[in-house]
Simulated scan of single mutants.
Amino acid sequence: MKCEIQEFIEHLHNTRGTSRNTEVSYERDLKKLEQFLKQEGILEWHQVSAVLLNSYIMYLERKNFAASSISRSVASIRAFFQYLCQRECWRENPAEGLKAPKIEKKAPGILTVDEVDLLLSQPKENTAKGVRDRAMLELLYATGIRVSELIHLTLRDVNLKLGYLTCSQSERERVIPFGATAKTAVEAYMAWARVELLGENSSEWLFVNCSGKSMSRQGFWKILKGYAVSAGIQQDITPHTLRHSFAAHLVQNGADLKSVQEMMGHSDISTTQIYMNMNVNKIRDVYMKAHPRK
């Protein structure tokens, strides 16, 4: 069963040009399914029925997996069995009627502009680490890219002269501009801090850790959490908080949804629509507090 999973991942890479992150997610989801099926005595994919797949989804729910994780697993399973059906010429697809649980869309946590300013002012600019951290935070807020995309930026991906970066980690490559503040922060980092962190090492990655190696998601998360604490920010901050804040602040200041969608890399504009809804709710709150005849 492992062979078919690996062949499917290679198929995705060769025919769809999927990113490594996407491929890892598909592989992880399908290996979990494979483990479940083996426990049920199923050793071949053609033995799988619609009833078994539904039982697996119920098993994930009983194990208290998040609805978003289960939904992603359903998408992986559907894609995999569609591939098997085409390759093996199966008449029936057992995953055809498989349904994902409804995901309740919650408003993402965002920072106010003042909180962002406070957070971004925390790194000490008299140390190489502080200059690097300031550059990472400024670039993250200036572009709204994902943390996985930030830590995988190479020197070739950033054009400081024209003020834009090319983000190719996701399935849709996109070019995103950034302003003078982020540009100044990255230039300061490139001028001396990166050289000091690298020492005698060399690296294609834009941002490196204190050992001169590429940054990790966990490493960045610890950095962000530390600065949030020192800034006295009460709400729980995740690496996605600056991405959400970037989008919400753009919409609040009049940016059109289509442009924000392109910069965020959303395939569906309905995903971007949540930031417009947040803006409407904010306006309503202001109205209810201020209008004399509310």
Rank of each mutant, 00 (worst) to 15 (best):
A67F: 01
V48T: 14
K63Y: 04
R72K: 07
Q35P: 00
A79G: 09
R91D: 15
L52P: 10
S55Q: 14
W45A: 11
W90P: 02
R91T: 15
W90Q: 06
S55C: 09
Y56Q: 02
R87T: 12
I70F: 01
V51A: 11
S76H: 04
Q39V: 02
S55V: 02
S55A: 13
H46L: 00
Q47Y: 08
E40A: 08
R91C: 08
A66C: 09
N64F: 05
E92S: 10
Q82I: 03
Q47R: 14
S73L: 03
F36G: 06
R91S: 15
K63E: 14
Y56H: 09
K63P: 02
Y83Q: 06
I77C: 11
Q39Y: 00
S76I: 04
S49W: 02
V74E: 02
E44T: 15
R62G: 08
V48E: 06
A75F: 00
G41C: 01
E61G: 10
R62C: 01
Q39K: 11
A75I: 09
E34V: 03
L43F: 06
L84F: 03
E88L: 01
R91A: 13
I77P: 07
F65G: 06
A79L: 03
L37S: 11
A50V: 09
A75Y: 00
Q35C: 06
M58G: 10
E40R: 13
V51D: 13
W90N: 05
Y59L: 00
S69H: 04
R91G: 15
L43H: 10
S69Q: 04
Y59N: 10
I42A: 10
C89Q: 14
I57N: 12
S73R: 09
H46R: 14
R91E: 15
Y56C: 01
I42S: 08
F81V: 04
E88N: 12
A66I: 08
K63G: 07
Q47V: 05
R87M: 10
A50P: 15
R78Y: 00
A66R: 14
V48Q: 08
Q82A: 04
I42F: 02
L37F: 03
S55K: 12
F36D: 04
N64C: 08
G41F: 00
I70T: 11
S49E: 09
S69F: 02
G41S: 03
N54T: 12
L43W: 05
A75M: 02
L52Q: 15
E92Y: 06
A50T: 15
E44V: 09
E44H: 15
L84G: 04
E44Y: 12
R87H: 07
F36P: 07
V48H: 10
Q82T: 10
C85V: 08
S76K: 05
L43I: 07
E92P: 03
C85N: 09
S69L: 07
E40I: 00
L60E: 11
I42W: 02
K38W: 01
Q86L: 12
F81C: 04
L60T: 09
S49F: 02
R87N: 11
N64S: 14
K38E: 10
L53C: 12
W90Y: 05
C89R: 12
C85E: 11
F36Q: 04
K38I: 04
R87P: 00
A67R: 11
M58K: 13
V48S: 09
A66T: 13
F81T: 02
K38M: 05
L37E: 07
R87V: 10
L84S: 06
